[in-house]
Simulated scan of single mutants.
Amino acid sequence: MEEGFGFFGLLAVIIVLFFLFLYYVPILLWFSALVSGVRISLVQLILMRVRKVPPALIVRALIEAHKAGLKDVKRDDLEAHFLAGGHIASVVHALVSAAKANIDLSFQMATAIDLAGRDVFQAVQMSVNPKVIDTPPVAAVAKDGIQLIAKARVTVRANIKQLVGGAGEETVLARVGEGIVSSIGSSMSHKAVLENPDSISKRVLGKGLDAGTAFEILSIDIADIDIGKNIGAVLQMDQAEADKNIAQAKAEERRAMAVALEQEMKAKAQEARAKVIEAEAEVPLAMADAFRNGNLGVMDYLKIKNVEADTSMRDSISKSPQDKPDKNK
């Protein structure tokens, strides 16, 4: 029994060592590269394991590049790109597609695009097959005050040379929307825009909206134009309402000032009446003082009374019958 267990233990150790040997010494992978025409030493494959670089990924990329006739793809460059966090398969696929489509794309440019966070393979595909971007509805107002709502379809293709540092789709859509608003706003009438919508496309294309972006605009087509509100009439109505409110406020201010002035005049009239009453009250006091000082005699006083009675009689005679009080009431 002990000899049987020893034999099976030894066999297990041999199997484990065999698989470890195949893991660190990928003979099958080396043979696959050899028959594919890729010259790579077995020592380099072992060192890749030590450097934590998957040899299968590097060998497959080298085989694909070799079969496609790419001469500038080197093993050291692929390892460096993998260690930098790049996607080796995507880069090699992009280089092969670019070579087949006669697109000038170097290995350094492809790795730079990949490390910048863009899908370089998708960018190459977009260079071959342009992409159509639908803009959201763009509202603009012509000079006659009518609002137009336009939708456009922008056909773009990737600009390989500006993928690193170039603006994305959002910038292209924003610039196209700005161009549509400017084009419609400069039109004298909304009817002219409806009759000739391609004039918007020509004006927008002539502004070079793809400058500094990662795309090249091939065409801008107006897909739909709808008539919106009469903004001019709405603004006039709002202005008229504002003017009316201002006029009402000013009229109310003038009325309040008139009421205040009236109350002020009434107060002044009451003040004047009070002064008259106060002056009339001082007359008897002055007469009494004159009597005491001997400045006014009895005959003088009687003359004053006769004058007052005569004046009162003349006033009653001069009044018209309508001014006389009705005794029957």
Rank of each mutant, 00 (worst) to 15 (best):
M1I: 13
E2R: 09
E2A: 06
E3R: 12
G6A: 14
V13Q: 11
I14C: 06
V16K: 02
L17A: 12
F18Q: 13
L22R: 14
L22W: 07
Y23S: 09
L29I: 12
L29C: 09
L34K: 10
S36C: 13
R39K: 07
L45E: 00
I46E: 05
V50H: 06
K52L: 13
K52P: 03
V53G: 01
A56L: 07
L57I: 02
V59A: 06
V59G: 07
E64S: 13
H66S: 05
G69H: 04
L70S: 10
K71I: 12
D72M: 10
D72W: 03
D77I: 00
L78Y: 06
E79P: 05
L83N: 08
I88W: 00
I88P: 03
S90E: 15
H93E: 09
A94W: 12
V96Y: 02
A99W: 02
A99F: 02
S106R: 10
F107A: 15
F107W: 02
M109H: 09
A110V: 02
A110Y: 10
A110M: 11
A112Y: 08
D114E: 06
L115F: 01
G117A: 09
V120I: 12
V124Y: 12
Q125M: 14
Q125T: 08
S127F: 06
S127T: 06
N129S: 15
P130G: 09
P130S: 02
V132Q: 01
V132A: 03
V138W: 03
A139M: 06
V141M: 08
D144H: 08
G145V: 13
I146A: 00
Q147N: 05
I149V: 08
A150D: 02
A152R: 00
V154R: 00
T155D: 02
T155C: 04
V156H: 04
R157G: 01
Q162S: 15
L163T: 03
G166Y: 03
G168H: 11
E169A: 05
T171M: 13
T171P: 12
L173T: 00
I180T: 01
S183D: 14
A192I: 00
V193A: 01
K202F: 01
L205K: 11
K207W: 15
K207S: 07
A211K: 05
F215V: 10
I217C: 02
I217M: 07
I220H: 09
I220F: 11
I222T: 00
I222Y: 09
A223T: 05
D224N: 05
D226L: 09
I227T: 09
K229Y: 00
N230S: 04
G232E: 01
A233G: 15
L235H: 15
Q236P: 12
Q236N: 08
A240D: 09
I246Y: 13
Q248C: 12
Q248G: 15
Q248F: 10
A249W: 09
A251T: 05
A251S: 09
A251R: 14
E252Y: 01
E252R: 07
M257S: 09
A267R: 08
R273Q: 14
R273N: 10
A274W: 08
K275I: 14
V276M: 14
E280C: 00
E282I: 11
A288N: 07
D289M: 08
L296R: 12
G297K: 03
I304A: 15
N306Y: 11
N306C: 07
V307F: 11
E308K: 04
S312V: 14
S312M: 12
I317W: 08
D323A: 05
D326I: 02
D326C: 03
K327F: 13
K329P: 00
